[in-house]
């Protein structure tokens, strides 16, 4: 009998000092309506707080929103903290006002995917479903 697919669990958070939470709340509502389990931990989360929550909540993915221009500091800090905690199997993705050049650099560092303003929520949902599925089948092979 095929196993019933487990619901995707995703942690959403805003790091840094920026308080613009419109985008992340819209994404949270869209994920919820798409049947995912969403944990939104709110504003001003440090990399330690984010990774801590991700490990405790046993999530498949962590989504980060940054509109302040501090993305080149905050994304690497979260990646480092994930490695330090041995949690780097968790998918890290995000969104915000991030120039293309920086997106390229961050994706090289290990951020799975970055979305910019205007991205349809369906695109983000479809991306996340595929990415989590791909990650899970990789793990099963290993």
């Amino acid at each position: 009998m095929p196993k019933k697919p487990k619901k995707i669990r995703v942690l959403l958070a805003k790091p840094g000092l920026d308080g613009h939470d419109r985008g992340i709340k819209v994404i949270a509502a869209a994920f919820r309506d798409a049947g995912m389990e969403v944990i939104y931990t709110g504003l001003r989360q440090t990399p330690e707080m984010i990774v801590d929550a991700a490990v405790q909540e046993d999530v498949d993915a962590v989504g980060i929103s940054i509109l302040s221009g501090a993305h080149m500091t905050l994304f690497p800090a979260i990646l480092d903290e994930m490695k330090r905690r041995g949690a780097d199997e968790i998918l890290l993705f995000g969104g915000g006002i991030i120039p293309d050049e920086d997106i390229e650099e961050l994706e090289k560092m290990g951020v799975a995917r970055l979305f910019t303003p205007g991205a349809p929520t369906d695109d983000v949902i479809n991306y996340l479903r595929k990415a989590v599925e791909a990650k899970k089948s990789d793990e099963e092979v290993m």
Binding site: G16, L17, D18, R44, T46, S68, G69, A70, M72, T73, L74, A77
Partner: peptide, 22 residues
Amino acid sequence: DLPTLMGYDSDHSRSLGEVGKC
């Protein structure tokens, strides 16, 4: 910038990456 708006000095750890940005 955001650290000033949030009442953190430029040498505070929470200001990292945000000093002079916005």
